[in-house]
């Protein structure tokens, strides 16, 4: 693996570079799409840390995304905070939500963990509705354009938004890369592969799973907070079960346990929906068939299968 250090770094930096260059090449529509995809893929990368590397199948990640979204939205729009501290609070919100959920939910594993996270997320969604007078429930609220300025950068401007999204994406991608190649990351993978054996080697599974989940929640929260500031909308839909299943789908599609997989999965899923709805009114059918075809062709996800067949060094 060490022999491929250069290739690995080059690949990931190359992806970031290509994304930067695409801004100048792509039509406006796709530029804007890519900004969305990059922000949402940070959510997927967060999910990947929990699911792909630590082996925690969560059905409650919408809670972490929404924690970031609502922490930032509430503080910036309703309490009048500047966007910069609001963004940091959103990131912390995602991590804290993951910590709180983890302390209870990590008493369980496997399918029970899946259900406990699902129920906590559902309770979170209902809480947003319960505090409707503040949150405006499902309808949500708009973050004023004037408030969406971080360190002098107006996030409602297309170019600024694109490069802010790219910066967040790059930071998350490199952090993930560093994490999975760090000793902690190797322990997380060991937890996924064989928790009992890791325990005998002296690693506390609860502690490492909690680290994995909090790191995961942090990225999900960062994605939610950034999404709110960049696109100016906060709503309960983002806390619904659908937004817990989407990152799972993105990660599985791109390849669980690969650093670039979450981005690729988010990208492919976005364009599957977008292109198919241009072609036919029955576009869900096309999306469904494409998912079946993809999974039959690449069972471990796109990059997971590529790693299995051709590039064993892919992180």
């Amino acid at each position: 693996m060490t022999g491929h250090r250069g290739a690995i770094l080059g690949l990931h930096l190359g992806v970031i570079g290509v994304l930067a260059a695409l801004y100048f090449v792509l039509p406006a529509y796709h530029v804007s799409n890519l900004a969305r995809i990059m922000v949402l893929s940070v959510f997927a990368m967060g999910y990947n840390i929990a699911f792909g590397y630590t082996g925690l199948l969560s059905l409650g990640h919408a809670l972490f995304f929404a924690s970031g979204l609502y922490a930032t939205g509430t503080l910036v729009q309703l309490a009048g905070w500047p966007a910069g501290p609001g963004l940091l609070a959103g990131i912390a919100g995602g991590a804290l939500a993951a910590l709180a959920v983890g302390l209870l939910a990590l008493r369980t594993t496997g399918v029970a963990f899946m259900i406990v996270t699902l129920m906590f997320a559902q309770a979170g969604y209902l809480l947003i509705l319960y505090f409707g007078p503040l949150t405006r429930g499902d309808e949500g609220y708009v973050i004023d354009r004037a408030s969406r300025v971080v360190a002098g950068l107006d996030l409602s401007d297309d170019r600024t938004r694109y490069f802010a999204a790219l910066a967040l994406f790059a930071l998350a991608l490199l952090a993930c890369l560093a994490l999975v190649r760090s000793p902690t990351g190797r322990v997380l993978v060991a937890m996924r592969e064989n928790a009992e054996r890791s325990r005998m080697l002296g690693y506390d599974p609860f502690r490492y799973r909690l680290i994995g989940l909090v790191a995961s929640g942090l990225l999900a929260g960062a994605s939610g907070a950034a999404y709110g500031l960049m696109f100016g909308y906060v709503g309960a839909t983002f806390a619904s079960i659908q937004y817990s299943i989407l990152p799972l789908l993105w990660v599985l599609l791109g390849g669980a346990g690969t650093v670039l997989g979450p981005f690729l999965g988010t990208l492919v899923m976005f364009y599957l929906v977008d292109l198919s709805s241009s072609v036919t009114t029955a576009h869900l059918m096309v999306v469904g068939l494409a998912l079946l075809a993809l999974v039959l062709f690449a069972r471990k996800g796109l990059l997971g299968s590529l790693r299995e067949r051709a590039l064993p060094w892919l992180p």
Binding site: I245, M285, V287, G288, L291, V295, L296
Partner: peptide, 13 residues
């Protein structure tokens, strides 16, 4: 894992 993706595909269909 593949089954989850496949059954999500079936759900859409």
């Amino acid at each position: 894992e593949a089954t989850i993706v496949a059954t999500i595909g079936l759900l859409y269909i």
